[in-house]
Every structure is written in structure tokens, then in C-alpha cells.
């Protein structure tokens, strides 16, 4: 059984600013990171590999420089790393993205080994749609189990999986037959740290690149042309600017008193 982890290279959003004139993300000089939720999907795939011995492939759609993200996955221990990269994939929304990713998973399924599980982060921190994982599941006809915070049981012979879903204020235990697509939350696990010999090996390893000549998808279903969603505007919301009232360093007692009195006067301290 093959497990596929879908990972995405995203800009480090804590360092992203929005250009006030053009209303677009200022991406120059911003470092890229692996989408944090995806690191948990990858970690879970590797843990299942450790337990059941199944192979793990990491796939990512993105520009050629997204190769670095896949090298990180190789350093952590995935068996194959595949970058889906082609100019015609560019400008994709969640629908077109899931078309490409599911085509790649399908290809692995037919040419390599039967895919039993696809693991995705619950969403990316740049787009925040949480649609790509479910999109892959529906395109592949896999069961979809979203917001997973624990794999309760995986029965590889009986081909069933039971997971816990983290919902607001409650947990839900659900069971589904394989193959299944899981989107995962941070509570699922603590991602491992790469060992240096693996990092060195990963820097010499091959990241396979699949373009559309490999996937042979209809250009109307991918990239900008295959994307019904258009972003018309992006902007920073107006935020009321706060006011500094006291100086906690010079006069901590006074500042604390001022804070309490201010909260009391605004009726913000329940007494």
C-alpha cells in the first residue's frame, strides 16, 4: 500500500506584507516554508510507514523552486518525492489544483502501487480554503475524513480506518473503508526533526518532476483556464489602532492599576 502526502510550499505568512498600492502580497525576499498543516500530514504518513512498512510518496504542485519543500520531505524519510510543475498548471484555483493532484495520485495508483491513503493538511496558510483535500477525494472517489486529530485504528488487511475528527467543542470518531483521504489538524502529532545523514542524502536525491506531458490533462481543466474562481482584490482590513496608556517598564504598579481601572470603566472585567 502506498501513502501519498500532499504538501505545499507557502510564503512564511508571518513575514508577508500587503502592498498598500497594488493590494497584492509583497513576496520579494519572503522565505518559503512548508505549509505547517502539511508537515503534520507528512509526519503521520511517516509514522504509518514506521508502523506498517508501507511506502510514502510526497507530492507537491508548484513552481520549480518548490523542489526545496520536497527535499525537506526526503530528508524526513519519504520514499519518493514528486514535483508537479508546468507553466500550464500556473494560476490554478482549488478546483484546477485538485485536478492535477488527483491525476498524479491516480498515476501512482496505476503505475506504482495501490494508493490506500492520501494525507493533506486541513488547509494552507496562504489560501486558507480547505478545499483541495476534499477536492482530491471527490475526484478520486476516495472517502474523505477531514480535520483528523488522531488515527484510532488502521486495518490494512481489512482495509478500514477509524479516526477522530476535531470539531468545535467535540470530537467525532468515524470509520471508513480504504482508500481514504484525510485532512489533518496540528494536534495529530509532533513533526519529527530531520537527521543530518538524511538531510545530506536528500540533497543528492532526485526529486521527480512531472509536467503535463506526463499527466496529459486537458488544458481546459488545469491552471488559469481550468479555474472558475478569480481573486478580484486582496487587501489588509482596516484595524483600529490601539493606544499606549501606561509604561509598564518605568512604573509597573501604575500601569497595572491603569489597566484594571480602564477595563473596569469599559465594563470589561466581570466582577
Amino acid at each position: 500500500m502506498l501513502i501519498v502526502a500532499c504538501i505545499k510550499q507557502v510564503p512564511d505568512t508571518t513575514q508577508v506584507q500587503i502592498d498598500p498600492v497594488t493590494n497584492t502580497l509583497v513576496r520579494e525576499g519572503i522565505p518559503f516554508i512548508v505549509n505547517p498543516y502539511d508537515t503534520h500530514a507528512l509526519e503521520e504518513a511517516l509514522r504509518l510507514k514506521d508502523r506498517f512498512g508501507c511506502a510514502v510518496a510526497a507530492i507537491s504542485m508548484g513552481p520549480p523552486n518548490a523542489e526545496g519543500t520536497l527535499r525537506k520531505a526526503l530528508a524526513l524519510g519519504v520514499d519518493r518525492a514528486i514535483l508537479l510543475s508546468d507553466r500550464v498548471f500556473g494560476g490554478a484555483d482549488t478546483l484546477a489544483t485538485s485536478n492535477v493532484l488527483s491525476a498524479a495520485i491516480n498515476k501512482l495508483h496505476h503505475e506504482c502501487d495501490e494508493v490506500g491513503l492520501v494525507l493533506c493538511g486541513k488547509q494552507t496558510i496562504d489560501g486558507d480554503t480547505a478545499q483541495v483535500g476534499p477536492g482530491i477525494a471527490s475526484r478520486l472517489g476516495f472517502q474523505q475524513l477531514t480535520l483528523v486529530d488522531r488515527i484510532v485504528e488502521l486495518d490494512t488487511t481489512g482495509r478500514r480506518i477509524r479516526v477522530s475528527r476535531k470539531l468545535e467543542g467535540r470530537h467525532e470518531i468515524v470509520e471508513a473503508p480504504l482508500p481514504a483521504m484525510l485532512t489533518v489538524v496540528r494536534e495529530l502529532n509532533r513533526p519529527r526533526y530531520p537527521r543530518v545523514p538524511m538531510r545530506l542524502a536528500a540533497s543528492d536525491a532526485t526529486v521527480e518532476v512531472w509536467n503535463n506531458q506526463v499527466l496529459k490533462l486537458d488544458e481546459q481543466s488545469i491552471g488559469l483556464k481550468g479555474s472558475p474562481t478569480w481573486v478580484s482584490k486582496i487587501f489588509s482590513p482596516e484595524r483600529a489602532k490601539g493606544e499606549i496608556l501606561g509604561d509598564g517598564y518605568a512604573d509597573p504598579d501604575g500601569a497595572a492599576r491603569l489597566l484594571i481601572n480602564t477595563l473596569l470603566s469599559k465594563d470589561m472585567l466581570p466582577l
Binding site: 509532533r190 519529527r192 526533526y193 530531520p194 537527521r195 543530518v196 545523514p197
Partner: peptide, 13 residues
Amino acid sequence: LVEEEAHFPEELL
């Protein structure tokens, strides 16, 4: 411990 085993107190991750 860090480089060969990636094994260290969790605060350090």
C-alpha cells in the same frame, strides 16, 4: 543525539 538521532528535549524543536 541531535544530528544522528534527531533526539532531544522537546523544548528544543
